[in-house]
Simulated assay, not measured.
Amino acid sequence: MTKRQYAYARTGQREAGAPQFVVNGRFATPYRGDAALARAIDSADRQAAGPAISLRAGGVVIGADARSARDVAVWLVEHDPRTIRTPVHAGRNGGRALADRSAACALRRLGG
C-alpha cells in the first residue's frame, strides 16, 4: 500500500496518502455520507471519456456510456476497521506513532 500511495502522489497530488475515494482518477474525497459522495461524483469532470458512475440502492454502479472510449479497471480496497498505531520513521511525522483507523490491508481487482 505504501508503494501505491507514492505512485498516487506522483500523479500531481501534494503528498503521499490514501484518499477514501478517487473519482475519475483525478478527484480525491473523504466519505461524508451518500449525498456528499453523489455530489463529488457529479462534480468530477469526466472530460471526453471515462466511466459512468452513479449511486443506486446503497451501492455504486460503474458502467460505460457513449463517451467511454476505453476499458476501465475497478478495484476494491479492503480495510481493517480497528485503530492501529503505526510508527513513522521519516518525514514530518518521523519519530511519532500515528493512529490509523480503517487502514487499507488488501487490494482486489473486481473487474475491467
Rank of each mutant, 00 (worst) to 15 (best):
M1V: 04
M1Y: 04
T2R: 13
T2E: 06
T2W: 09
K3N: 07
K3R: 08
R4A: 13
Q5A: 15
Y6P: 03
Y8M: 10
A9Q: 15
T11G: 07
T11A: 08
Q13T: 01
A16W: 09
G17A: 05
G17E: 06
G17L: 08
P19R: 09
Q20S: 08
V22K: 00
V22R: 04
V23E: 10
V23A: 09
G25L: 05
R26N: 03
R26F: 07
T29K: 00
P30K: 03
P30I: 01
Y31G: 00
Y31I: 01
R32H: 06
G33D: 05
G33H: 09
A35Q: 12
L37F: 06
L37D: 09
R39T: 06
A40P: 08
I41D: 05
A44H: 01
D45N: 14
D45T: 07
D45E: 13
Q47P: 10
A48H: 07
A49F: 14
G50D: 10
P51T: 09
A52W: 06
I53K: 07
I53M: 06
S54V: 08
S54F: 03
S54L: 02
R56Q: 15
G59T: 12
V60C: 13
V60F: 10
I62V: 15
I62A: 12
G63Q: 05
G63C: 03
A64V: 12
D65W: 14
A66P: 02
R67Q: 12
R67S: 14
R70T: 13
R70W: 01
V72D: 11
A73Q: 02
L76H: 15
V77I: 03
E78H: 00
D80R: 12
D80T: 11
R85V: 00
T86M: 12
P87R: 14
P87C: 05
V88S: 04
V88A: 05
V88E: 13
V88H: 13
A90G: 12
A90C: 11
A90W: 04
G91K: 14
G91Y: 06
R92W: 03
R92F: 06
N93W: 10
G95T: 11
R96Q: 11
R96S: 13
A97T: 14
L98A: 09
A99G: 14
A99W: 12
A103V: 01
A103N: 09
A103M: 02
L107F: 09
L107N: 04
R108A: 11
R108K: 15
R108D: 10
R109H: 03
G111F: 03
